[in-house]
Amino acid sequence: MTATLFAEQTLNGLQFGVMLFLMAAGLTLIFGIMDVINLAHGSLYMAGAFVGGTVTARTGSFLLGVVAGAAAGALIALLLELTVIRRLYRRDHLDQVLATYALILTFNEGVKVIWGPAPIFLAAPEMLSGTVEILPGVPYPAYRLAVICAGVAAALFLGWLIGRTRTGMLIRAGTTHRETVQALGVDVGVLFALVFAIGGALAGLAGVMAGPVLAVQVGMGEQILILAFVVIVVGGLGSVKGAMAGALLVGLADTWARAFLPVLLRGLLPPSSADQVAANLGSVAVYLLMAVVLAVRPQGLFPRHA
């Protein structure tokens, strides 16, 4: 274990954290403004990956694939908001969970019907397929660096949108004083649909970008959805800043644990089982992190009404 490995894994952790942020930001905005818990957010991520992958394969342009993936996420989110989610605003969280659970089942099976049960292949673009020397003598995949940059750009854009524009002002006002915003004559129906579409676009974007790093397959959405929940719990519900902090913490914790546990366990266990044990124990690390944060600060690191 060397400084090189550590630097590599830290960058991997940042890259994963950035993806988690794109997922968690949408989820937390939707919850903050509409008080809706949307399990189907992972399906938007999956849809983005599959549509993006298909478009990339057909056109040969990864950039078009990214645009298509984000657009697919936004469109499906909009469609969902208009047909299903809109009916759930006045329902309790239990109904929201069940309805969006039913949506997951539907989407997962729908993807199996369209694309088949096998994972599809999504290659990194030619231009980014090489490596970049991050430190002297330490190559790092260019694609992963690009993902970090794209994620940071998306986060900055989101920060600008929410912090500096009129729409963002309404979104912020909507999270804290929904009734007042309504009473001032803002069409909250449009606002809600817009927030949903933004969340969908971010999830779709995360899905396409994850494609070349992780596998594009049915069920990919739920794995990241549950981790995005952990991010939100750690960061504080309804807060974009919290989502950012939580995403980086969870991304780094998960990546470090998966990378360094095998090294530690190889000394203790027979090598045949050490890797499997370590891989799964590594997955446990983020949940322990969540438990610790909850024990100390039940409302998360950046609670909305602090």
């Binding site: 818990i37 969280h93 969970v97 549950i226 929940f229 089982s273 499997q276 891989a279 799964n280 949940y287």
Partner: peptide
Amino acid sequence: TRGVHFIMITLAFAQMVFFLVLALP
């Protein structure tokens, strides 16, 4: 915790148990 927090946390801990069991070759 309450409400949505409770839903997400129970889901997350169940997932933790899932991975713990997978770690028993």
